[in-house]
Write a protein that binds this DNA or RNA. Sequence first.
DNA 1: CGCAGCCTTGAACTCCGTCAACTTCCGTGG
DNA 2: CCACGGAAGTTGACGGAGTTCAAGGCTGCG
Lengths: 247, 247
Amino acid sequence: MDQAPERQRLIRKLESITDLSDEEREALMELPVVVREFEAGHDIVRTGDQPQSCCLILTGFVCRYMLLPDGRRQILAFHPPGDVPDLQSLHLKTLDHNVAAMARTTAGFIPHENLHRLTRQFPGLMGALWRETLIDAAVFRAWMVALGRRTAHERVAHLLCEMTLRFAAVGLADGLSYQMPVTQNDIADALGLSNVHVNRVLQDLRRDELIVWRRTTITVLQWTALQELAAFDPTYLHLKPIPGVSE
Amino acid sequence: MDQAPERQRLIRKLESITDLSDEEREALMELPVVVREFEAGHDIVRTGDQPQSCCLILTGFVCRYMLLPDGRRQILAFHPPGDVPDLQSLHLKTLDHNVAAMARTTAGFIPHENLHRLTRQFPGLMGALWRETLIDAAVFRAWMVALGRRTAHERVAHLLCEMTLRFAAVGLADGLSYQMPVTQNDIADALGLSNVHVNRVLQDLRRDELIVWRRTTITVLQWTALQELAAFDPTYLHLKPIPGVSE
DNA sequence: CGCAGCCTTGAACTCCGTCAACTTCCGTGG
DNA sequence: CCACGGAAGTTGACGGAGTTCAAGGCTGCG
């Protein structure tokens, strides 16, 4: 009876960026989902893999990353529950980067054939999924601007703004507070900085009482000030307005 | 009789990443294309626009970029002829960045409705176009790694490797030589560096006889050495093997 | 209670940015 | 044909944001 919560995750996510019809929601509820669990630090899929299914994050937290031959790591994206980090594998056979669990994570695997059938039957859903991959790319672009042209303080602030909205969009934030299980080292690898410098920047943000970050709990104390510091413009997330946060 | 060359550009590009059937090629030949011309430095579409057609680059050269409020610029992508830099507008109504001509450029505008009709009629073409947007994102990821974790020398070398393959893939390279009308300032804004530093890096590459760059003509002299310097792995471009360059 | 991973701190260093001047190159027009 | 002007490329001196290295301090889990 209650395998529903999984699909609700996906539906909630899609509805944060598109409108779904009742039929489409029903079709999503009928998707077969194989649930697997991953320990923190373990890869879910890897460079070179040719997955036959997409993985929907149900609980936990996930990142995508690439490694240079000498071990330097760049984190490409963070994914809260509801995201499908390898949705691209639907049309790009070979994976060119890794997906890893940053905390104990449960993921639901949805076979490609079922997703393909769905997109054939419901052009609206095809649009929604395509759109989802395009927003993925939009986030990459925003990160590129951060990596290339923002200062360390701006980068950290920008990442915090983005994650705040994305957690809120799928209902996983409590006001401006949310759980994000990443280390300062992870932040550094996401923002192209050293862990030492990330530490110093975070101390500044705390000293200025813009945020509180205790253990894995992040709380934004001064949303407007943080946005201004980051020159954060949420357009690129292409989210519908979020009750209680935006609008 | 001879409006054909335009569509050939698109077909050639798509065939560098997918196989097309005769029917699909024919359907592409029947797309209406409105040709317009743009001067160097002029925007083709802008942030906030809600375009009703996609622009196919026919001749010239184009970049996508974002500006920070204080004027800092990050170039997100370069596009040789054959590319459709705003293909995403098919499923993302509002543009979140700009597309600009870097040299005198002719672009062919293809109405969204025609592309949508095409994707409904030919699922293979839908796959090809979706795939195209996914490769776009893959290139963003590669750039993110460069911006976040590569040194200035590696970044420049990596960009040169990428552009060499992309020009070659659409038949616009003469061996390892091609025309790319960008200034050192543009390179700097693409790689998150200053124009001064790009200048010094290029001098190093020339001194070591890895490349020649005169005016807008780039020639790679030592392909293997350049690849090694960049730690360049072309997988992310998801190209078929290019006769005469790769394989 | 102990250990391991994470956070924190300080000092030295470096890659790259900034500023400012100078040169080269090319297109234009006289 | 040459003179001019502006944009792009080049050079040097200096400064700073962020890195590296290394040590020490927390803290939560087994």
